[in-house]
Design a protein around this nucleic acid. Structure first.
Lengths: 136, 136
DNA sequence: TCCTACGATAGACAGAGTCCAAGTCAAGAA
DNA sequence: TTCTTGACTTGGACTCTGTCTATCGTAGGA
């Protein structure tokens, strides 16, 4: 995680307690927190941190490419710090749990030109849905 | 579309003017309207229809499997009446336009057992992103 | 140590969707 | 045809997620 903080400082980020705490909350594998969850965990360490700051910081991390924004349902977006290894998501329809998964094959290659309608297609996101062991 | 109305009646749906209008608005290919757009178009034919009724009716159509709910971004869900032929979606990052597409291959088959973490995986949704000819 | 521009804050605001109590009406029964 | 009833509709309040703005605070350079 200090890696991330170092990279951010290298990019000219002013380092504040709030930004540090948000970055620390997002540390780890298989982390897919909503903005509200990030705020709750950040506030446990730094009680006066505001929602607006959490949203601002998450937005900056996303635009710097350090965090991925995932919309697994129509509800709140989730934030995934595993931005440096391509992957897809497996979502439990019961409890909403999200796991990173690595399918083989390239979904982009499966879309024939005739099905692109003149679009410049740059990305394919796959969301697998099912029930996790606890919900099955 | 009268097909749909017949199927719904066959399932014990009470046929009201509101439900008929919502079903009619969703007729056609490559239709991906938000709830608000459905409401606006329905209200053009039946001015007093309420938002709650549109949401209720869309929810029922989805749970009957006659309409698919698509969350292409973190904003409003879209409703796709093309529920009886499997397909994926191609979304323009510029203007938000959505097209139905039919890639070959089965994304479900690309997810090895070792990457399923004990989940019962039943569905794979692919969202292709890029720029449409008008936005490129 | 002092300055100042960048960052944080609280709270108002907006969009999407849900919920509820009260009124309405489709469709089967008489 | 008329009656009855429970399913359907309505409007408005409410929740949740996210954005914006004016003001205050402070990290880091001079």
């Amino acid at each position: 995680m200090s890696d991330l903080l170092e990279r951010l400082r290298g990019r000219g980020w002013r380092m504040t307690a709030q930004r540090r705490v948000v970055a620390e909350v997002l540390d780890g594998d298989h982390v897919h927190l909503t903005a509200d969850e990030v705020h709750a965990r950040a506030a446990a360490r730094l009680p006066e941190i505001s929602r607006a700051t959490v949203y601002n910081t998450l937005g900056e991390l996303v635009s710097l490419g350090e965090v991925i924004e995932v919309a697994t349902d129509g509800r709140a977006k989730r934030y995934d710090p595993n931005a440096h290894r391509p992957h897809q998501h497996l979502v439990c329809s019961g409890c909403g749990t999200v796991r990173d998964v690595h399918p083989h094959g390239d979904p982009l290659a499966d879309l024939p030109d005739a099905e692109r309608f003149g679009f410049t297609v740059s990305q394919a996101e796959v969301t697998y849905r099912g029930l996790c062991p606890a919900c099955a």
